[in-house]
C-alpha cells in the first residue's frame, strides 16, 4: 500500500459523478504507449478519482472479483479498447456491464493512428 504524492485539488472533481476505470492494456502493443500515457496524464491532471489496472483482459481471464463490483455500478466509465471487446470481457467474466456503462475507446484517440 502506498500513499505518495499530493495532487492539486480540482474544483471540477466534486461535480463529476462517474467512476473511471483506466486499462493500461499490458502485454501487447495493441494501443500505443504514447496514447496510453496521454490518457493517463489527462486523468491525473483532471483531479478526478479513478482506478487504473494493468490489464482488463487479465482481470477477465482470472475472474477478478473487482470486475463484478465495478459492473454493479451505474456510473462506470471505462477507458480501454473497443467497446465490443470490453463488454465481451465483462460478460465472459460472469458480470455483464450495465447499459449505462460508458466505454472510451483508446483506439479512437486522436494520436492513436
Amino acid at each position: 500500500m502506498q500513499s505518495l504524492l499530493k495532487k492539486p485539488q480540482n474544483p471540477k472533481y466534486s461535480q463529476r459523478m462517474s467512476h473511471t476505470l483506466y486499462c493500461r492494456c499490458a502485454y501487447a502493443q495493441v494501443i500505443s504507449g504514447p496514447v496510453k500515457n496521454a490518457r493517463l496524464e489527462q486523468l491525473c491532471a483532471s483531479g478526478e478519482e479513478f482506478e487504473a489496472v494493468p490489464d482488463l483482459c487479465e482481470m477477465a481471464a482470472t475472474r477478478d472479483p473487482r470486475l463484478a463490483e465495478l459492473a454493479r455500478r451505474d456510473d462506470l466509465r471505462i477507458i480501454a479498447c473497443h467497446p465490443r471487446a470490453v463488454k465481451g470481457l465483462f460478460t465472459q467474466a460472469g458480470c455483464p456491464l450495465p447499459p449505462t456503462a460508458e466505454i472510451v475507446n483508446m483506439h479512437e484517440s486522436p494520436s492513436a493512428s
Binding site: Q9, R24, E41, E49, P54
Partner: peptide
C-alpha cells in the same frame, strides 16, 4: 502520471483519489 504508469507496468492496480494514490 509517470509513477502510476510504472506501478501499472509492474503489475499493480492503482486507485487514485483527489490527493493521493
Amino acid at each position: 502520471a509517470s509513477e502510476i504508469a510504472t506501478l501499472l507496468d509492474s503489475g499493480n492496480a492503482v486507485t487514485v483519489s483527489a490527493d493521493s494514490y
